[in-house]
């Protein structure tokens, strides 16, 4: 623009082309950026600026309210990784959570989707019903299952009693050895239908010719699944592996709504600990460090994924 204003157009043609150039600049640069600006500014305000601040905050001993702030370098991280035993326990719970979610919903969804892909009539109905739990709010899902897992007359206890099986009148959510897995089970009840829909869509995109060819070769159903279906849906399965691994480190609402990390820290994960540190114990700096650590885990998982792709994996 600076260059433009210095030029003094002398002829009519130059004046005209200058006019056209301005109009083009307005239409192709200014207006598009005016269109983009509002959402971008909101996003920078809510995500980018606080994310950068978070890194700085994680290197301070700030409590969150009083103006007393000291820069303490990496002390929070040192405490987190080497001194805070409860953090190690939470991290361990996150990893258990991840192992659960990288297996149970995937097996369930793959199995169900391959059953559903062969159905001609009523497939849409199954698909819709199996998807219903996914649209429920976490507060609703947890309320349902808190009732169903009630040791006195919840669904598990009552049906076990009806069948004459003993040992199921257990407070699954109140015991240190079952709390975390029970919450994972509940979250999975809500989640797995979503995976199933993704896998089903991918299976239906596989050209039927491949199945014909497999049949001509005399493949049985397992071989068909192993050599036609699985390679066909591999990209989405691997992608969801990455996403689920990341989400496992962010897990919060189901745990918070059911046990708040209890009993006795049995279902504590990094996010519930972070929440308590930030908003109940007023250790903002320490909580920010935990947030950064969660992000590093997420970034690490993405890096592995990108590296595998660079290595020529067909992801």
């Amino acid at each position: 623009m600076a260059v433009l204003t210095q030029q003094k157009p002398t002829t009519v043609i130059e004046k005209l082309s200058d006019e056209i150039w301005r109009k083009k600049f307005l239409r192709n640069v200014i207006i598009p950026w005016v269109f983009i600006a509002p959402l971008l500014i909101i996003h920078i305000f809510v995500v980018a600026i606080p994310a950068v601040q978070g890194v700085y905050m994680s290197m301070t001993d700030w409590g969150g309210i009083n103006p007393n702030v000291n820069f303490i370098g990496l002390d929070n991280y040192h405490e987190l990784l080497f001194e805070d035993k409860s953090f190690g326990k939470s991290l361990n719970n996150n990893i258990v959570w991840m192992l659960f979610f990288l297996t149970v919903p995937f097996i369930l969804a793959l199995f169900c989707a391959s059953m559903l892909a062969q159905i001609k009539r009523g497939g849409m109905l199954y698909r819709s019903i199996l998807f219903i739990p996914y649209v429920l709010a976490s507060v609703v899902t947890t309320t349902i299952w808190k009732n169903l897992l009630n040791p006195k007359d919840g669904i598990v206890a009552a049906s076990a009693r009806a069948l004459g099986i003993e040992g199921f009148e257990v407070a699954f959510l109140g015991r240190t050895d079952t709390a975390l897995m029970s919450i994972a089970f509940i979250d999975n009840w809500h989640f797995w239908g979503f995976l199933m829909i993704l896998f089903l869509a991918a299976m239906q995109a596989i050209p039927p010719v491949l199945y014909d060819a497999a049949k001509i070769d005399g493949a049985n159903r397992w071989q068909e699944f192993r050599h036609v279906t699985l390679p066909g849906i591999r990209p989405i399965v691997l992608f969801m592996f990455m996403m689920v691994a990341i989400w496992s480190f962010l897990a919060f609402d189901y745990i918070w709504l059911i046990t708040q990390g209890g009993p006795g820290g049995a279902s504590e994960v990094i996010a519930t600990q972070l929440y308590k540190n930030a908003f109940q114990r007023f250790e903002a700096g320490y909580a920010a460090a935990q947030g950064v650590v969660i992000s590093i885990f997420a970034g690490f998982i993405i890096m592995i994924f990108v590296m595998l792709r660079r290595r020529g994996w067909d992801i």
Partner: peptide, 30 residues
């Protein structure tokens, strides 16, 4: 319209979409 800087902006949103809420929730609160 693809104004200059579009690719950079898409990259920004791609990276931003992977930032967990836990990274910025405390500073955002403040």
């Amino acid at each position: 319209k693809r104004p200059p800087g579009s690719d950079l902006l898409m990259l920004y949103f791609l990276v931003a979409s992977t930032i967990p809420v836990w990274m910025y929730i405390v500073p955002l609160f403040v």
